[in-house]
Simulated assay, not measured.
Amino acid sequence: MLKIHGVPRSRAFRCIWAAEEAGLPYEVVPLGFAAGFKLERPLTINPNNKIPALEDGSLVLFESLAINMHIARKAGAPLMPSGDDASRVDQWTLWAATEAEPHVMRWAYNAFLKPEAERVPAEAAAGKEALDARLAVLEAELASRPYLVGKDFTVADLNLASVLYGSWLNGYDYTRFPKVKAWLDACLTRPKALAARKQREG
């Protein structure tokens, strides 16, 4: 059984969703946050002392998107396709981490995550401007296919949609990006996504 260390209201949500989509048995080992986004106790299996971390037998992994790639490989197609499409999954997963997440988090911290008195509107605006430039790329890509790799939902979609999930849930303006919005709606209302969201939002 997979052991996912963390809480659903963290990046562990991504891994819970991946396990749901993969149909693999899993257990969430609760570990949440104290004040200031610090862990309530150390997580010794992760040298970075961050959540999530995964135990799969003797294998221990950290980094949520790497965990998801491992889970998807265990499940196989269609969650993790083969051949060139597997390389496209890698591409979009790295794009989620390097191109999307830094900017969506810059916006999020200053739009809803931090206490209101600590938010800096100019930082939120800068994050949105940078993210919008990346969303324009995504909008163009989704003009030719329903999902990132082709006609089927894969872990690439899960990884990027989970990175954008907080913005989608918390009022980010996707008006300029209707294809992105429709794709996010499709990803985040899948039955397994709803199962994971129930844990996170409940």
Rank of each mutant, 00 (worst) to 15 (best):
H5K: 01
H5C: 06
V7Y: 04
P8R: 07
R9E: 14
R9F: 09
R11P: 05
R14H: 12
I16V: 15
W17T: 03
W17C: 04
E21S: 13
G23C: 06
G23F: 08
L24H: 01
P25L: 01
Y26K: 04
Y26C: 06
Y26N: 10
E27A: 13
V28F: 15
V29R: 11
L31N: 04
G32F: 06
G32S: 08
A35C: 01
F37H: 14
K38T: 05
L39I: 00
L39G: 05
P42E: 12
P42L: 08
L43I: 01
N46F: 05
N46I: 00
P47Q: 14
N48L: 15
N49V: 06
P52L: 11
D56H: 14
D56M: 08
G57I: 09
S58H: 13
L59N: 07
L59C: 10
V60T: 13
V60K: 04
V60D: 04
V60M: 09
M69V: 02
A72G: 06
R73G: 07
K74A: 07
A75F: 03
A75Y: 02
G76A: 08
G76W: 11
L79K: 00
M80Q: 08
D84I: 08
S87P: 00
S87A: 13
V89K: 01
D90Q: 13
D90G: 00
T93C: 02
L94N: 14
L94A: 15
A96S: 15
A96G: 13
A97D: 07
A97M: 14
E99V: 00
E99G: 01
A100G: 10
M105F: 12
R106S: 12
W107S: 06
A108C: 10
A108W: 11
A108K: 09
F112N: 07
L113D: 02
K114S: 05
P115C: 14
R119F: 12
A125H: 10
A125W: 04
A126G: 10
A126E: 15
A130R: 09
L131T: 04
A133P: 00
R134T: 03
R134C: 10
A136L: 12
V137H: 14
V137A: 12
V137G: 13
L138W: 09
E139H: 12
L142P: 01
L142D: 07
A143T: 09
A143S: 15
L148D: 08
G150V: 09
G150E: 12
K151H: 09
F153S: 03
F153V: 05
F153R: 05
L158A: 10
N159C: 14
L160H: 14
S162T: 13
S162V: 02
S162I: 03
L164I: 11
S167K: 03
N170P: 00
G171N: 05
T175W: 08
V180A: 13
V180Q: 10
K181G: 01
A182T: 08
A182V: 08
D185V: 05
A186N: 08
A186P: 03
A186G: 06
R190N: 12
K192F: 00
R197G: 03
K198D: 14
R200F: 10
